[in-house]
Design a protein around this nucleic acid. Structure first.
Length: 178
DNA sequence: ACCGTGATTGAG
DNA sequence: TCAATCACGGTT
């Protein structure tokens, strides 16, 4: 039993809440020789159902986005612009398509760079985020940081309302003084 | 600012 | 069949 593991119960909640609460959690990846890399999540985005015009599910279920309709805590990986694997984690109840995009950690900025650095590609798509699959999430230390939110990146195609929704979350600087 | 790069998608 | 699109990143 791994008490620190973030499991289905954590992800089976409103996706915007999960996106915010993932800040400070650890993205854990098994490497060769049993080595484990743990990175503190610092930037996320929520994609919230078919009504969200920036969400891949905005036009209904397709072969690619079907995983978003499934069980919370499952990995959704897709190739963006022919080059970059983007890592998402499925949230909410089955049948409701949603996911959190991992955009950065304290060490790595950018969703494409993150997967590149960790050696993640489409092989983990549709797998559960658990230790035996080589990628999982653990509760992190509570950090003295402020969380900020704002519009998501690269979704201007979604129309003003959804493009402006403050569904992106990130750490600001550590609180100074006092 | 522009472009590489290729899966995905919806239209024809 | 096919062309537009695209949750990015690197370079000009």
């Amino acid at each position: 039993m791994d008490h620190a593991l973030l499991g289905k119960d954590f992800f089976n909640r409103p996706v915007v809440l999960v996106a915010r609460e993932l800040l400070g959690a650890n993205l854990c990846v098994s490497k060769k020789k049993g080595e484990v890399v743990k990175m503190t999540i610092s930037e996320t985005e929520a994609y919230d159902g078919e009504e969200d015009l920036a969400c891949h599910a905005s036009k209904g279920k397709t072969p690619r986005n079907e995983v978003m309709y499934g069980e919370a805590g499952v990995i959704y990986l897709y190739l963006c612009y022919g080059m970059h694997w983007l890592l998402n984690i499925v949230c909410e109840r089955e049948g409701y398509p949603s996911a959190v995009l991992l955009r950065g950690t304290l060490d790595v900025n950018g969703p494409g760079r993150l997967t590149r650095k960790l050696g993640i590609d489409g092989k983990l798509n549709r797998k559960r985020a658990i230790h035996s699959n080589g990628l999982w999430f653990e509760r992190g230390n509570v950090l003295k940081r402020q969380i900020q939110s704002g519009p998501r990146i690269g979704v201007n195609f979604a129309g003003e309302y959804w493009a402006q929704k403050p569904y992106r979350f990130w750490f600001s600087k550590a609180k100074s003084g006092a």
